[in-house]
Design a protein around this nucleic acid. Structure first.
Length: 851
RNA sequence: GCGGAAGUGGUGGAAUGGCAGACACGCUAGGUUCAGGACCUAGUGAGCGCAAGCUCGUGGGGGUUCGAAUCCCCCCUUCCGCACCA
């Protein structure tokens, strides 16, 4: 492939030279500040946001495809007259920088700086219409200062607390968030993950579980898929708390302080079928109960077994159900029945209350356990349809039905029984109806160097103290010492740790954990609205002017983590009064759920090559620089959009890229031929009219497809337009009538501009368009020009295509039928049969139903 | 197991109740060029046929309809989430 098409002798002068063209227009856009978004502008605003990358070296074809989607959208709406903000930045804290620093023996800050300048240069080679004046970088002190400010602000509001928790522990990468664990293994190194107890800072996301859930109703612009994923992740369930007394441990306690075994169940209607109690091995009362039942040693052994089991069995189904009796009984509050308490490996301590009323007749897990240990099975629910046979001894009946063997609650359906039983519990002070969420509080800390230091100081006298705002940012030390890679360099840096207590001024120590990068990226879209503010995290007026994000484009791997945390941060900031997204309506009322940051969400597909997702680790990347050198940014952009629907995965093929290049070369060649011809009045009016009609058709089709994010068909329509123009130009067979073609190609440039912006500018210039193509007003079509004077209609007989007729566009149904009957291919099928029905779909087809 | 998405030529994909395969890639033949992974023209779902044309055809089976890739029911396959959540 020539990289310099004009260099060789004998070439036709002016052959499409993507290198020269692309550089030329990138420089022009940069000089003129074409894509800088002004805060005050009379046009309506449109915030187009693309998930910012982790800058880990070179961009590849996968990134190109991802970002060209949002760029096409941003450019399209810009031309449609919107004041578009389309910013970009870098999510630059996190593990890979640290790994690179260890591998290459350089500082993470130096490494990431190189990566960022490479990424910025590579982005610019693709002509993305980013407003570079708004660039943010999460690892820069003037950014993480505000990440830290969020932490201390939330801490002062009581939203951050410290707790000993079991964390996911990877030997190589330390503590992992739940969403960093895949199938029981670390998402980065596939190493098995174990559990470890550690004091961590937690964010009270669970306080907002209900708000986060309800907010989803306000997001019709999100895909059902993501809404469902978040709904499941939050995992609301409605059930009942019920208290079971344990006389063996309460007898020795003073009245009023007697502990009870509290259970959570969604099937309180089955409580009369409860034949034993199952608690987690590490339930808070387990040891007390074991002590009372003389089972302490056995419980300790069991607890150890379970801890190692958690690591061995990644999938719950593979884990055999096991347990030990604790030697004590508890009392069912409804019937006073005494049932044994077991510690079991199938009850987890961090959901509900860590204790389960076991109903083997109506729960398959309890049933499996009861079978294993010979515990009794009792039926308390029967199917509403008496014809259905049920044998709970053989298999648990888990459907809802009517209560039996349940005392006063017999013959009630589920809802009646639950309401009556919840009411009974509340009345007798043994429980109440309850709601549970699967969502857990958010672990903020990582035992890593390359992150925003958690701005907390520990003083032996005053305890934990937040660093005052005036002392933010708490900067990372300039040098990280990686001689001992098992420990965070911060924890080993005595000079850095040593500080004064903000409260008493005495000697104190800094927290050596850094924040999860999910925190850094949970608010960057707000900072883009006011990226250089040194006095505040942002100016609420500027945020109110730009937010919410109108289009958010990114990978579906962030469907839960990043998007949920961003929603949470926005929600809390709004609640604390730092931010007001929802504007009061005319009555001064705030819309209930007007605090969602991302109005519409678009998940692009991934790019595959050789059957695997394109990634550096798979070794199947096509580098963006090579691609731009060899084929050009415009060609790569065209292929990325043309290869298939943007929300589906795309297989990267060289032949497909070449097809894109061929298309642009043909465009360029036609443009050159037309521009070289004398600009004269059209002497062939019919041909000129065909060119005009083709233009209106293309404008209508491309505009509609772009509104619906159908880039592949939009480009197909431009290819059709080009095919028509080429054919007409050939028919013109001369050069005394280029007027219509000049107009056609000027519009062509505009239609091409969102996809292949560099060549579009070149064509625009070639045909003397005013200013820049990127600044031009998107063309509109005249619907009257889409109406053809004659139509070709298919004719069906009994649903089978039998012929085609050509009729005037305005032809009546009678005329169509007459023309159809007159058609000899159709007439053959109408001979010797009786027509029982005639259907004319105007403009679409003619059908005869015969017998 | 539960939930979601998908299944159309040799390939990527179009068509969301009305001409299946737009637009490309690939392939075949011809042309053009000193040469080219350049360009142009024509052809290209399968089967039958000299042809006009006919039959079949959107994972499989059934249904609704004058008409189904599209709507409904059952089944199969693939991919992706979640998974002892009580």
């Amino acid at each position: 492939m020539d990289t310099d098409n004009t260099a060789r002798g004998g070439q036709r002068a002016g052959r499409y030279n993507h290198i020269a063209i692309e550089k030329k227009w990138q420089d022009v856009w940069e000089e003129r500040g074409t894509f800088v978004a002004a805060d005050s502008d009379p046009r309506p605003k449109l915030y187009v946001l693309q998930m910012f990358p982790y800058p880990s070296g070179n961009l590849h074809a996968g990134h190109v495809r991802n970002y060209v989607i949002g760029d096409a959208i941003a450019r399209f709406w810009r031309m449609k007259g919107y004041n578009v903000m389309h910013p970009m930045g870098y999510d630059s804290f996190g593990l890979p920088a640290e790994q690179a620093a260890i591998d290459r023996k350089i500082q993470p800050a130096d490494w990431i700086e190189q990566c960022i300048s490479t990424a910025r240069r590579q982005f610019k080679r693709y002509g993305f219409s980013f407003d570079w004046t708004r660039e943010v970088n999460t690892s820069a002190p003037d950014y993480y200062r505000w990440t830290q400010w969020l932490f201390t602000t939330f801490y002062r509001q009581g939203l951050v607390y410290r707790k000993q928790i079991e964390v996911n522990w990877c030997e190589e990468h330390g503590v992992l968030a739940n969403d960093e664990v895949k199938d029981g293994a670390c998402w980065r190194c596939d190493r098995e993950v174990s559990k470890k107890k550690m004091a961590q800072w937690l964010m009270r996301t669970t306080d907002y579980a209900q708000d986060l859930l309800e907010g989803l109703d306000d997001l019709p612009g999100w895909t059902q898929r993501v809404v469902k994923l978040q709904t499941n992740w939050i995992g609301r369930s409605e059930g009942t708390h019920a208290d079971f007394a344990v006389p063996a441990i309460t007898d020795s306690c003073p009245a009023g302080e007697q502990p009870v075994l509290r259970i959570y169940t969604t099937r309180v209607d089955t409580i009369f079928g409860c034949t034993f109690m199952a608690v987690a091995p590490d339930h808070p009362l387990a040891e007390a109960m074991a002590a009372a039942g003389n089972m302490s040693d056995k419980l300790a052994t069991f607890q150890e077994e379970c801890a190692s089991e958690d690591v061995r069995f990644k999938v719950a189904e593979e884990k055999p159900k096991r347990g030990i009796p604790l030697g004590v009984n508890c009392i069912n509050p409804f019937n006073g029945e005494e049932i044994p308490v077991w510690a079991t490996n199938y009850v987890v301590s961090d959901f509900g209350t860590g204790a389960v009323m076991a109903v083997p007749g109506h729960d398959s897990r309890d049933h499996a356990f009861a079978r294993e240990y010979g515990l009794p099975v009792r039926q308390v629910i029967r199917p509403a349809d008496a014809a259905v046979e049920v044998d709970v001894q053989r298999e648990a009946y888990t459907e809802k039905g009517l209560s039996i063997n349940s005392g006063d609650f017999d013959n009630m359906d589920f809802h009646t029984a639950k309401a009556a039983m919840d009411n009974w519990l509340m009345h007798h002070h043994h429980g109440e109806s309850a709601v549970q969420y699967r969502l857990r509080d958010w672990n903020m800390g990582r035992q890593r160097f390359w992150g925003a230091p958690i701005p907390m100081v520990h003083c032996t006298a005053c305890g934990w103290q937040p660093v005052p705002d005036s002392e933010l940012p708490v900067r990372l030390p300039a040098e990280a010492d990686y001689s001992d890679i098992r420990v965070s360099p911060l924890a080993n840096d005595e000079d850095w740790k040593r500080t004064k207590c903000p409260a008493c001024g005495g000697a104190a120590e800094r927290d050596t954990d850094t924040m999860t990068t999910f925190m850094c990226s949970a608010w960057y879209f707000l900072r883009f609205c006011d990226p250089h503010n040194d006095n505040a995290i942002f100016d609420p007026a500027k945020v109110a002017a730009w937010m919410p994000v109108d289009y958010y484009i990114g990978g579906q791997e962030h469907a839960v983590g990043h998007l949920l945390y961003s929603r949470f941060i926005t929600m809390v900031l709004q609640k604390l009064g730092y931010l007001q997204l929802a504007r009061p309506d005319f009555a001064g009322e705030l819309p209930k759920l007007g605090n969602e940051p991302f109005r519409r969400l678009f998940n692009q597909g991934m790019v595959y090559k050789d059957g695997a997702k394109m990634s550096k680790s798979k070794g199947n990347v096509v580098s963006s620089d090579e691609l731009a050198d060899e084929y050009g940014a415009d060609t790569a952009r065209i292929f990325g959009l043309f290869g298939g629907p943007a929300d589906q995965d795309l297989e990267w093929t060289t032949s497909g890229v070449e097809g894109g290049l061929r298309f642009l070369r043909r465009v360029y060649r036609l443009a050159q031929a037309v521009s070289a011809a004398p600009n004269l009045e059209d002497s062939l009016p019919e041909m000129a009219e065909n060119a005009v009609r083709a233009r209106h058709r293309a404008v209508a089709g491309v505009s509609e497809d772009l509104c619906n994010w159908r880039f592949n068909t939009a480009i197909a329509k431009q290819m059709e337009y080009l095919n028509e123009l080429e054919k007409l130009w050939q028919q013109a067979d001369g050069n005394d009538h280029s007027g219509a073609f000049r107009v056609a190609l000027t519009s062509f440039a505009q239609l091409l501009s969102p996809f292949a912006p560099h060549i579009a500018e070149e064509l625009w210039e070639m045909f003397d368009g005013p200013g820049l193509c990127a600044d031009s007003e998107w063309p509109i079509h005249d619907p009257a020009m889409l109406v053809e004077s004659t139509l070709e209609l298919p004719v069906q007989v009994n649903g089978k295509l039998r012929g085609r007729i050509t009729v005037a566009a305005a032809a009546s149904a009678e005329d169509c039928l007459a023309a159809a009957r007159a058609n000899e291919d159709v007439a053959r099928w109408l001979e010797g049969v009786s027509v029982i029905k005639e259907i004319v779909v105007p403009g679409r087809m003619v059908t005869f139903v015969v017998k």
